[in-house]
Write a protein that binds this DNA or RNA. Structure first.
Length: 930
RNA sequence: GCGGACGUGGCGUAAUUGGUAGCCGCGCCAGACUUAGGAUCUGGUCCUGAAAGGGGUGGGGGUUCGAGUCCCUUCGUCCGCACCA
């Protein structure tokens, strides 16, 4: 291979291409899947291969993980750094509906674009691990996991999931007595009854327990997308994808009993190194609240019992009325004939309002049902109201209103003239409700004079003793709706016989996605698969489930598949799982906080319970890379004329239209007028009012990077111009990895200049090799080892921006020192290689090495070169470090002592007196004793 | 409203985690070269001052010999959650 001697635009392209080919050809990044070396697993959140390709914001995380992977490899780890694709998803399907192109074709096309762009960046992913969630060989195991969920129940006594067989065994021996499960309620039964039941009855009952089960409940139905959505996919009452309105309707759907894992998901957060904000979001989402359920009988309706949840059972004597959500199942029977006239319209109106309308509403609204509940302790009649500030989905969908100590209840009581009763001392009711936990109880019979915490315990004890309720922990987390009425997703491995679901045998997996004539949903809540009758109807008379799994199914476990992508007897081989799990470093966007990241934890906990994977938490450390925002460039056009005015010359009285112009036409807020004229035909003849200096200025504006704002900067063009190494280093140099920051193309020249100057250390301007074997000077060695140390530290703490800065300092310094010494430059190239792998490979080869620098060893930091000519002596007074004294390194202990004694400041702390004793210890701490 | 993160030059940022604030880069200024350029190289660039010096990390207060860093308070920005009983 002929060495490249110049580092210029033409040769950079040649150089980078050459090494990319070399890496492909030599399979440089394939990790041995088992090894004696310690492992390090670096994982990116795999992308959905959208049609738009990558913009400069996307590669930030990929570059960071690539640098870390390369760095860890240099440190001697066996590094797995894979890349796959989250290939099922709505955009490909919607494109298919419009064009008839099979989603698999568009998806594969997009994947190839992504792969090309990633290769161009020099990302060293293990090429043997390129999985796709839409590949039958992969989704076979997604279906397999689903079957395990379907075939499992949550044993609360053992605090883990177990195969459903253990439950059936219990039923056969003891009936439902003694089962402590996370399950839907049902009537108790005996072993005899169970044994007497027919198969459908047993199956129907088991659905109450299965961790994947059919539910008939309120779901988020999105008419525009033609599918249901999980709570995590709905934001502010509209779909996260597309922003379409979402309705709450009752439908039969598959759901996963994630609520069984609420407590484990909460506790597991304490064992993992994830960002606080993500942990906090997950805690909020799980929404644990401790309190009690209380049952209220209804006057004149012995069969009706209103159960409420409260976190403040101590305030039960302050309850003056009950409120039910409009959708509460008891509402219908509680509305009396007299009240119906006013109540019915309100209930109908409130139930039909969207979540969004309801939460936007500030006005208190509600209606009296005409019925009264009986206070469990006083027997007082409490009017039962219906109001939409009570949500059907939380707690029991009913509350006891304590207007004295809950703001919403107070507002409601005030609005409708209901009584307000003070039961906790600690505030002023004239100012409104107060919900202090500091006060003591009054007007509360047996709770009087107790402090709130004791009162809560006492109230729960009393409720339980009298059978009126019990202590209870409630979670905001809902079971996850798991079916979608779409084509482009994993088919369920489920068939129905007599309307009851059965899992297909494992040896029938994968249940492959059939071809369809139309990708259009076939009607209200039905997947396009329903139309494929010869697929749906099976010879034995059973029919297939026609929904498909949601987008997050495959992403909930894919990180285990990279260990063993070809395995067709298990999701991954046990010894590989044992070696590689968990992920050591996971990087991706913060937007997945309560979606993917929660589901993936849930699936991992589940698989761990069943012994299929060796870890309960899949990712030890998580980092969210910041978003790179676009910087739009705005130009101002007079409203009524084809006249553009420079942004610093706008006239006060004139009306202007703000127009996004292509950011590539702007250099440092100055518009390239010729380019702008040529950009749009209608601007060719426009007039331009320029600033005093003759320049036409734009106004920058930070916003999301988007095609419509003409602020998208494509990494490919920057790689063409400066090379991938420059691009990689510049993305890192931009700022801290986790911070969001606006893209600024201008600064890239600084990094590019650094790489050129670095090259100059090896080749002079004429392309002559200048590296010598001479002995480097101490100053050079100091510079080298400082850099080796700083860069290693910075890589450990992911401070890549400061590492890049350190490289720049070094190259400036070594240039000044005239360094051309192999002993300095060779280690430096290794140190730089994670950041600029192409350039490093080239120089490594020029230094005479015949193997890839990827497998080199990170140079040893020799501390002796780092010690300063002067040393900071920490001075401790009676053991507490009080000061540091800068003294020459070789100063004898006595001299240090003398210096300390002479230090006026030390005497000042001593209160004017000289220290009794000064001890200089070998660790160079100076102890001063008074 | 609740929770989290943060506030440093014209800009992106750095500061050995309590020890000389402003590293590195952009931009800007000056100079060199020059086939005048959006190239390259050199030097300068927090404020004030002729200098010595003084001031300075959103504002105010505190702890400390010493605070960008810790504590209290206030203002502001960003993010998340939000009728959660």
């Amino acid at each position: 291979m002929e060495p490249i001697r110049q580092y210029s635009a033409e040769t950079i392209a040649q150089l980078e291409d050459r090494w990319q080919q070399y890496w492909d050809h030599h399979q440089t990044y394939v990790a041995p899947k088992t090894s004696d070396k310690p492992k390090y697993y670096v994982l990116d959140m795999f992308p959905y291969p959208s049609g738009a390709g990558l913009h400069v914001g996307h590669p930030l995380g990929y570059i960071a993980s690539d640098i870390l992977a390369r760095f860890k490899r240099l440190q001697g780890y066996n590094v797995l750094h894979p890349m796959g694709f989250d290939a099922f998803g709505l955009p490909a399907e919607q494109y298919a509906i419009q064009t008839g192109t099979h989603p698999a074709i568009t998806t594969e096309r997009n994947i190839q674009t992504f792969l090309g762009q990633m290769r161009r960046l020099g990302l060293g992913h293990d090429p043997t691990t390129q999985l796709r969630t839409s590949d039958p060989g992969f989704y076979r195991w997604t279906q397999w996991v689903f079957l395990r969920l379907f075939g499992a129940w949550y044993n609360q006594a053992a605090d883990r999931a177990e195969p459903i067989e253990t439950l059936v065994g219990h039923f056969e021996r003891q009936g439902s007595a003694g089962v402590d499960a996370h399950a839907d309620p049902h009537d108790p039964f005996t072993a005899q009854e169970w044994l007497a039941w027919d198969e459908p009855s047993r199956q129907r009952l088991l659905l109450h327990y299965r961790l994947a089960y059919l539910s008939y409940d309120f779901v988020n139905w999105c008419p525009a997308l033609g599918t249901v959505l999980a709570n995590e996919e709905v934001k502010d009452g509209v779909s996260e994808r597309g922003g379409h309105p979402v309705e709450r309707i009752r439908m039969r759907q598959w759901a996963l009993r994630i609520t069984a894992y609420a407590e484990k998901l909460l506790r597991g957060l304490d064992t993992i190194d994830w960002p606080d904000s993500i942990k906090e979001q997950q805690r909020n989402w799980i929404g644990r609240s401790v309190g009690a359920r209380i049952r209220f009988n209804v006057q004149g309706q012995p069969e009706a019992v209103v159960e409420v949840f409260t976190t403040r059972p101590d305030t039960v004597f302050g309850a003056t009325f009950l409120v039910l959500a409009p959708e509460h199942p008891l509402v219908e029977s509680l509305v009396t004939a007299e009240a119906a006239l006013t109540a019915q319209p309100y209930i109908a109106w409130a139930s039909n309002r969207t979540e969004r309308e309801r939460s936007a509403e500030k006005e208190v609204s509600g209606v009296f049902t005409g019925s009264y509940a009986v206070h469990p302790f006083t027997g007082a009649p409490l009017p039962i109201w219906v109001a939409d500030y009570v949500l059907v989905g939380y707690g029991t969908g009913a509350i006891m209103a304590v207007p004295g100590h809950d703001e919403r209840d107070w507002a409601f009581a005030t609005r409708f003239g209901l009584p307000i009763c003070e039961v906790v001392v600690g505030g002023d009711l004239a100012q409104g409700a107060y919900s202090t936990k500091e006060g003591t109880l009054i007007n509360s019979d047996f709770l009087d004079r107790l402090a709130v915490p004791e009162a809560i315990a006492r109230a729960i004890g009393e409720l339980e003793a009298r059978g009126l309720g019990e202590g209870r922990t409630t979670y905001r987390l809902r079971d996850a709706v798991f079916s979608r009425q779409r084509y482009w997703g994993e088919p369920f491995p489920i068939v129905y016989r007599e309307g009851l679901p059965y899992g297909v045998p494992d040896d029938e997996l994968p249940v492959t996605l059939p071809e369809v004539e139309s990708y259009q949903p076939t009607g209200q809540a039905e997947s396009p698969l329903a139309a494929v009758t010869d697929w749906v109807e099976r010879p034995d008379g059973s029919v297939r489930e026609t929904n498909t799994m949601p987008g997050w199914a495959g992403s909930s476990w894919y990180f285990f598949r990279y260990f063993d992508t070809g395995n067709d007897s298990a999701l991954a081989g046990p010894e590989r799982l044992k070696y590689w799990a968990p992920v050591d470093f996971y990087i991706g966007g913060a937007e997945h906080a309560v979606g993917h990241l929660l589901y993936a934890r849930f699936w991992t906990h589940f698989l761990y319970d069943l012994g299929h994977v060796p870890v309960a938490e899949f990712a030890r450390r998580l980092v969210n890379q910041g978003m790179i925002q676009g910087v739009s460039q705005m130009v101002y056009k007079e409203r009524n004329a084809n006249v553009f005015v420079s942004a610093d010359s706008l006239a006060a009285g004139t009306a202007y239209i703000e127009i996004h112009c292509d950011v590539h036409l702007v250099q440092g807020e100055v518009l390239n007028l010729e380019g702008f004229r040529a950009w749009r035909p209608e601007y060719a003849q426009a007039q331009f009012v320029v600033s005093a200096d003759g320049k036409f200025r734009t106004r920058p504006q930070v916003e999301k990077m988007s095609k419509s704002k003409y602020n998208v900067v494509n990494p490919d063009t920057l790689c063409d111009q400066y090379g991938a190494d420059t691009f990689r280093m510049y993305e890192m140099f931009l700022g801290p990895l986790e911070a969001s920051k606006p893209w600024d193309t201008q600064g890239i020249t600084g990094v590019h200049g650094f790489l050129r100057r670095f090259w100059r250390l090896f080749y002079d301007e004429a392309g002559q090799w200048r590296v010598q074997d001479a002995e480097p000077t101490p100053a050079m060695l100091k510079q080298l080892h400082q850099t080796l140390k700083k860069v290693a530290d910075d890589c450990e703490r992911l401070s890549f921006n400061t590492a890049v800065a350190q490289f720049m300092i070094t190259v400036n310094e070594l240039t000044k020192l005239g360094c051309q010494h192999r002993a300095v430059l060779e280690p430096l190239v290794v140190c730089l290689s994670p950041f600029a792998p192409h350039l490093a490979e080239e120089l490594w080869r020029a230094l005479g090495h015949t193997t890839s620098i990827v497998h080199a060893q990170y140079p040893t930091v020799e501390e002796r070169y780092l010690v300063e000519a002067e040393f900071e002596y920490p001075i401790s007074v009676n053991g507490k470090v009080r000061a540091k004294l800068l003294l020459p390194l070789d100063l004898p202990a006595q001299a240090v002592e003398a210096q300390v004694l002479a230090l006026e400041e030390v005497q000042r702390w001593m209160g004017g007196s000289a220290p009794k004793k000064v001890v200089v210890v070998p660790g160079r701490i100076v102890n001063v004793v008074v």
